[in-house]
Amino acid sequence: MSDMPTPNPDQANRKLALKLVVVAVVMVGFGFALVPLYDVFCDITGLNGKTRGQALYTAKTVDKERSIKVEFMAESARGMPWVFEPVVRSMRVHPGEQYEVTFLVRNKANEAITGQAIPSVSPGEASLYFNKTECFCFEQQLLAAGETLEMPMRFFVDTQIPESVHTITLSYRMFNISEQTDASVAKQ
């Protein structure tokens, strides 16, 4: 470095500066990479009770010894004129067994509206063991004015779920995404 005389110090400076610019650009990329990394991290740790995507019913055994209380919550977000509620508020389940529950929605507005339900599971660690094999939250719902719909949701709790979990709360919030979908339709 400075102990050795360089033939052209300006060139050396420029070279090092360029390398550092590359580092900075890579770090911008890293900032964006934090988004998928975060999802992976959530997936591993159950952070924030983010639930996983569609699962396959794979459980071979049913643990009849244990019974876990599963609570269901459903709410419409602001600007969402839908009635949205679970038919059953809570139930007791055995890990490994598959269950089906139903949620009711009714569009009270006098126009068609597209909704998207966002799930959240508490406690967060339970989300790792809560598997949905079929869920209305995997897709958007389009309801005509005044339309009523029964939406099924099938799930099972993994037998590996830690002993410390006695209650699982599954909460859905229904968002009005008509504007976003209109915009994307308009774009196409």
Binding site: V26, M27, V28, F30, G31, L34
Partner: peptide
């Protein structure tokens, strides 16, 4: 600074 200012830039861009 070189490591984290770009991450802030990413955050505000998002």
């Amino acid at each position: 600074l070189i490591m984290v200012m770009p991450v802030l830039a990413g955050a505000v861009t998002m």
